Simulated assay, not measured.
Amino acid sequence: MLTLIGVAPRAIATGVLPGNSRDGRIGHLTLDDSAAVAATVLAEGGSQGEILEVTGPEAVTDTDIAAALTEATGHRVRLTGRPAAPVADYFAAHRADLVG
C-alpha cells in the first residue's frame, strides 16, 4: 500500500491511475499491517529460518483501487492499462513527485 501513497494524489489530480496488473489481485500492506506482523513474530517467536508470506487483509485489483479513489474523493479516476516497460518509465520519470 505504501507504493500507492505517491501515486494516489497524482491519480486523483490527473484522473488516471497507471497500471499493468490487469485483473491481478494484490494484497497491499500498510505500515500498520507490517508492524503488527513484526510485533507478533517477535513476541511469539518460533519462526526462525521460515519465510513468512504476508499479505494485506484484502486482495484488490488496480480497477478496485481506481474505484475506491473515485468514491473517496468524488473525482473520477480511471485505470489505464500499460505494458510493464512504460509503467516503469512512468514511475522513473515521476519519482520525485511520488516519493517527495
Rank of each mutant, 00 (worst) to 15 (best):
T61N: 12
A84P: 06
A68Q: 13
A68G: 01
V60I: 15
T63W: 10
H75Q: 09
G46H: 11
I26N: 03
E44Y: 02
A36Y: 00
Y90D: 14
T40E: 06
A84M: 11
A36L: 04
E53V: 13
E53M: 09
I26T: 05
T70P: 07
V41G: 01
V87I: 14
G81H: 08
T80W: 02
I26P: 00
G49P: 09
A68K: 14
A59W: 11
I26E: 00
I51Y: 06
T30G: 03
A93C: 05
G74H: 09
P86D: 08
V37D: 02
G74E: 01
A93E: 15
D64M: 01
D32A: 14
L42A: 07
A67Y: 00
T40R: 08
D62Y: 05
A38F: 08
I51W: 12
A88H: 10
Y90S: 05
T80P: 00
A72T: 02
T40S: 03
T30H: 02
A84C: 03
G45Q: 04
A43Y: 02
R25L: 14
V77H: 06
A43I: 04
P57F: 00
A43T: 09
G46C: 11
I65V: 15
A72M: 01
S47T: 12
R25G: 06
V87A: 10
G49V: 08
H94L: 11
R78F: 03
A92L: 15
A93T: 10
V37F: 04
A43R: 12
R76P: 05
G49C: 09
V60P: 07
D89H: 11
D62Q: 09
G81C: 03
L29A: 13
T30S: 14
A84F: 12
D32H: 08
S34H: 09
V41R: 02
I65Y: 03
D33Q: 05
E58H: 13
L79A: 00
H28A: 08
E44L: 09
